[in-house]
């Protein structure tokens, strides 16, 4: 599992690659920490190369959203395959994020 952050046109993009399971979540949480310092723009969670996510990963996504929303920052999910998207639907989290 690899998490990469980069800035693009004033927005922050987080790219997830591999399996975001409970074993991988603590490192991913560390890698995502800079997103909590965002004060403007938008955040894009790029899931094109994300193969799997469990509740530990969903928790991290929700946490990004909880930090961003009060600051008026929009959080977009992009590139989810049908299986991932079914997990977001099942948990109702799909309704909380903006899709792109």
């Amino acid at each position: 599992m690899k998490t990469t952050l980069y800035e693009k046109d004033g927005s922050m993009v987080a790219v997830f690659e591999g399996r975001l399971d409970t074993a991988a979540a603590p490192q991913c949480e560390q890698d995502l920490k800079p997103l909590n310092d965002c004060t403007a723009g938008e955040i894009v969670l790029d899931c094109n190369a994300l193969e799997y996510i469990s509740s530990s990963g969903l928790r991290l996504f929700l946490s990004v959203l909880k930090h961003a929303k009060p600051k008026g920052i929009h959080v977009f999910l992009t590139g989810m395959n049908a299986d991932l998207s079914s997990v977001f639907k099942m948990t109702g989290l799909i309704n909380l994020f903006e899709l792109r």
Binding site: S54, S55, R59, L62, L65, K66, V87, T91, G92, L96
Partner: peptide
């Protein structure tokens, strides 16, 4: 409760639900 907003949604508790 999967209908709660981001602000109301607790951060945990999804595991057994899944």
């Amino acid at each position: 409760d999967t209908t709660l907003s981001a602000e109301e949604r607790p951060i945990g508790g999804l595991g057994i639900f899944l």
